[in-house]
């Protein structure tokens, strides 16, 4: 973000399954004044995969009033996979405001059972939870893409449970 008052947004969903190793991320470099950026990253690891988020947020000296919010959340499906977050957060002037949050969770057995008891298959239940997990990213997409993305997610996760 070189110009003043510019803003950047990055939304990502990274899904890894099988033996995949996925490394995704972004760089937000604040150079201009009053620039803002937002990163929402959702990593879903299933099977024996490794899912890594790597991100750099930096505000240079002259980038006064720079703001960033980053949330990187990981969801683990199964106990053979790994999720990693490696954020680099560099504030080089006092008026930069950076917030970063990361959480890691798994699909709770209780939630799955609740869904299954209500008549969903195991995979449908997982899909439901995953879709809830990635909802705030999909909301950023136009409707037709969002529908497409949801389908892609369910294909990517086929065979991840059971």
């Amino acid at each position: 973000m070189r110009g003043d008052n510019s803003s950047g947004e990055f939304y990502s969903i990274a899904i890894s399954n099988g033996f995949q190793q996925v490394d995704s991320g972004t760089k937000m470099i604040h150079l201009g004044k009053n620039t803002s950026s937002r990163i929402i990253s959702k990593g879903i690891a299933a099977g024996k995969s490794q899912n890594t988020y790597r991100g750099l947020v930096t505000a240079h000296r002259k980038a006064t009033g720079a703001r960033n919010f980053t949330a990187c959340d990981s969801l683990l499906i199964g106990d053979k996979c790994g999720a990693h977050t490696v954020p680099y957060i560099e504030a080089k002037n006092s008026s930069a405001t950076f917030e970063h949050e990361a959480t890691t969770s798994k699909i709770s057995e209780d939630v799955l059972f609740y869904c299954i008891q209500r008549g969903l298959s195991q995979e449908e239940a997982v899909g439901l939870v995953v879709n809830g997990f990635v909802k705030d990213v999909l909301q950023q997409l136009p409707m037709e893409f969002a529908v497409e993305a949801q389908k892609l997610i369910s294909i990517s996760l086929e065979g991840s449970v059971g």
Partner: peptide, 24 residues
């Protein structure tokens, strides 16, 4: 200047881990 690098490296699924970082 403040540089923060809070990393999570997670290989187990039934965990509750998180971090937060702010600068300002």
């Amino acid at each position: 200047e403040a540089d923060n690098k809070p990393e999570l490296e997670i290989f187990a699924d039934d965990v509750s881990c998180g971090h937060g970082a702010t600068a300002g």
